[in-house]
């Protein structure tokens, strides 16, 4: 079946199988920043924005995305660059496998709640697991990033 998705503001048409998930379709089509982690929505690594809201692409059937807008980190390069600087300055990046999904989620937090406090940051990002950092440096980075944007 064919689906039409607007990815990072470009209209794309993909041929997909009814059983395929968005994650597989994106990776197959060279959007390699979207990565596979746990395969059951438990880790957050495969997050993309669907109509500006974070969703786990590993569990969103590609056909359900038909007609919608998808944003991957390639679509928010400037913002990701900024977030990356804050992460770098706090030593909040380690293996980095989850970082593009983290950038997308932080960006969407900024859209929804630009003044989020630490507890709200934690609640918003709790679905984005990290096995490397122990989280503390990430929260510092995100707090500073949000603080400097408003």
């Amino acid at each position: 079946m064919k689906i039409k998705i607007t990815i990072n503001e470009k209209d794309k048409i993909f041929e997909v199988e009814p059983s395929e998930y968005l994650l597989d379709v994106l990776r197959r089509n060279n959007y390699t920043s979207v990565r596979r982690g746990c395969d059951n929505t438990s880790c957050g690594v495969c997050t993309v924005l669907l109509d500006d809201k974070p969703v786990p692409s590993c569990s969103l059937l590609a056909l359900k995305a038909n007609g919608h807008r998808i944003t991957t980190v390639e679509g928010i390069q400037e913002e990701a660059h900024k977030i990356g600087l804050y992460f770098g300055n706090e030593g909040a990046d380690q293996c980095g496998y989850c970082n593009p999904s983290m950038a997308l989620t932080v960006y969407s937090l900024k859209l929804e709640n630009p003044k989020a406090n630490e507890q709200e940051i934690k609640e918003y990002l709790v679905g984005n697991l990290c096995r490397c950092t122990g989280y503390v440096a990430q929260h510092e980075a995100i707090k500073k990033y949000l603080g400097d944007q408003s």
Partner: peptide, 11 residues
Amino acid sequence: PSVDGLGIMKG
């Protein structure tokens, strides 16, 4: 800052 963090964050 890590030498590779930015590129990785940007996917």
